[in-house]
Design a protein around this nucleic acid. Structure first.
Lengths: 368, 368
DNA sequence: ACAATGCGTGAATCACCCT
DNA sequence: AAGGGTGATTCACGCATTG
């Protein structure tokens, strides 16, 4: 993935570039249903204490507190609806979005996101290991931010790399609360005079987990509030394509330079543990055809209480129940469903061995 | 505080009682500006579709009660606006509210709460130490719920017991994420036939922290969705007054009996011993996400004879062996098990450093 | 008596392919 | 488009039972 090179795909999208301009206008200029994932870190300058402006930029007279508040929330909602609608149009049917925010704005964003037809999959708490303390002692230390992960619709077959997340979490399911430190130290971009290049630069660790969880290598990730390009840097490293939109030229320049320094990982390093479902399908009948199991042989449940006879066509029979390994297992257990591969065992030298080991043998041959 | 006795205050409020009826109508019948704190656990509008079974085929006992069913987001919003308006009227000018919810409803509630004029002080994440797993492996484990803490207005001089919170948290500022287990075991109320008395009973530890943080002894706490009375039980124990509203007679009866069994503590006894912290678990994947080790980088055994490449999901690959740091180490050594933290080393300035030193670094951050 | 093992369960928006 | 078959999928903790 070149750092400045612009690749034009059949979608008409220029990949791995930063688009200058307003995010809504820029998104509306891109082809619909062309993007796999959107990561959005929208501004939340609600301006609740200072001057208030209506959506048309006219100033609100501070007559009445209720009206002020309403005007300011209403204009933020209007902004949220506009960019969420543009974002939803860009997503492929099975695409998904992540939005990050704090209590100032996340409730507005979340409600508008639901109203737009997105289907929330999880909300994820970024628990900061090193938050800024509350200096005045008037509230709790604000030690987290919230991310909403949502599919384009409740019909979407969204991407979730379950096994990879489980691996990242030492073999147990990844939870909805993630402990990750703030972006500080060498990772924090600085201007020439040592100022923070961007006030709210997100840690790359956060984007790493987001992209590993919900994209595959080669996917297209759009960030409409690109800032200094954390999304682009992590996408490039992990072998995903990015499209950034940012209106501030200083942020764009910082992002461009930053992403240029990133090296993409080789495919093996970027790879994650695949889902089981992706493995080639093997029919039980194949074990019979190959003589790994013989018609007439008996299969047993692990506890030894159930048994069934193998028939020549790869079905089982037990008393008056006939059918597939799954159907017979489910019927005998009175269960709604049953994975016959792990339920049934054959006997060898007096011990029960799951028939799944035979399937794995065939699969190993297939991938040789 | 007597268990059934009704005390009529100058406010006209009957304290330490459970009012039967619909929460909006009941609240509107109470005097305005008469309550110090409101704790609300409204229906979540879960929108569950089919049945869910565990991998062992047992059925999950889901929340399917009539009170949790709403026709649409619009009708849920209407319901939220109605009870929030009634609640706000009841609060004293310096009063505050807590609302608990999940991603299904909390964004609707939060936005409507802001629109009603409440001023959010913090959102607080209840991190469940023992959540139910995601059985189908399609999402992250939903391991938290969200509470919004808001003052009646941005002018309110709300109560916050900063020092008490700090003491509860081993002498450091209380954060906005609270680790508390689910309500199970002896605390969970059961019917005569062993069923859950209420499907969503909250743990007393949660209410304990809420009331210690944001009320003083003698304060009046209203709970418009009283259920089986967790708020009342904890309020009584801590020397606060409660007013509950609940329309289900079975829940009211269970709450009444429960609160009767509670003994109010004297002030001294209310002090809580700080909990001891176990050493936090650190996943190898966190080192990768944080950039302490890069995907693609090689790890080495101390003798230099074995090496493996790091992948993006925190697994290792060496020849055709893939898996966790422990699994790959064991496989390469032909050993039944292997502690990957001490087995694997990274190379820095020509010397081998065990990856365990990086884990220690993360642990040091977490326990600061 | 105490340790080891097994079982039950919790606010859950929990498939997907092929015919 | 709808229906049917295959087959993937769980963590922490309390409590009861077994050793």
């Amino acid at each position: 993935m070149a750092r400045v090179k612009t690749v034009t795909q059949p979608t008409g999208l220029s990949l791995n570039t930063i688009i200058a301009g307003d995010c809504v206008a820029a998104m509306n200029a891109l082809p619909e249903a062309s993007v796999d994932l959107i990561f959005a870190d929208p501004p939340y300058n609600l301006q609740l204490r200072g001057d208030l402006h209506r959506p048309d930029n006219s100033k609100v007279d501070a007559v009445d507190d209720e009206w002020d508040r309403f005007a300011s929330f209403a204009s933020y909602d209007e902004f949220s609806r506009a960019w969420l609608a543009a974002a939803r149009r860009l997503l492929k049917p099975d695409g998904a979005i992540w939005v990050i925010g704090s209590y100032h704005n996340i409730y507005r964003v979340g409600a508008n996101l639901q109203d737009a037809g997105f289907w929330i999959l999880n909300d994820v708490v970024w628990r900061k290991s090193n938050p800024m303390p509350n200096f005045r002692g008037k509230r709790l230390t604000n030690a987290h931010e919230t991310m909403i992960w949502a599919a384009k619709s409740d019909q979407s077959k969204y991407t979730f790399n379950y096994e990879a997340m489980k691996a990242l979490n030492d073999g147990v399911q990844m939870r909805s609360d993630w402990v990750i430190p703030l972006c500080t130290g060498g990772e924090r971009l600085r201007t020439a005079d040592g100022e923070k290049a961007h006030p709210t630069q997100k840690p790359e660790a956060l984007l790493h987990r987001v992209l590993v969880a919900s994209t595959n290598p080669g996917d297209i990730v759009l960030d409409p509030f690109f800032g200094t390009g954390t999304t682009g840097a992590v996408a490039k490293r992990l072998g995903r394509h990015y499209v950034g939109i940012e209106r501030d030229p200083a942020y764009r320049a910082a992002a461009q330079a930053r992403i240029a320094r990133v090296r993409a990982l080789d495919a093996e390093a970027a790879a994650v543990t695949p889902r089981k479902r992706a493995e080639p399908r093997v029919a039980f009948g194949q074990l019979v055809e190959r003589g790994m199991l013989a018609p007439g042989e008996m299969l047993h449940s692990l506890n030894g209480r159930r048994e069934a006879k193998i028939r020549a066509d790869g079905t089982l029979v037990s008393h008056d129940v006939r059918g597939s390994i799954h159907q017979v297992g489910a019927a005998l257990e009175g269960a709604p469903s049953c994975n016959g591969w792990t339920y049934w065992h054959f006997k060898k030298d007096g011990i029960f061995i799951p028939i799944d080991v035979l399937r794995q043998q065939i699969r190993a041959e297939l991938t040789d």
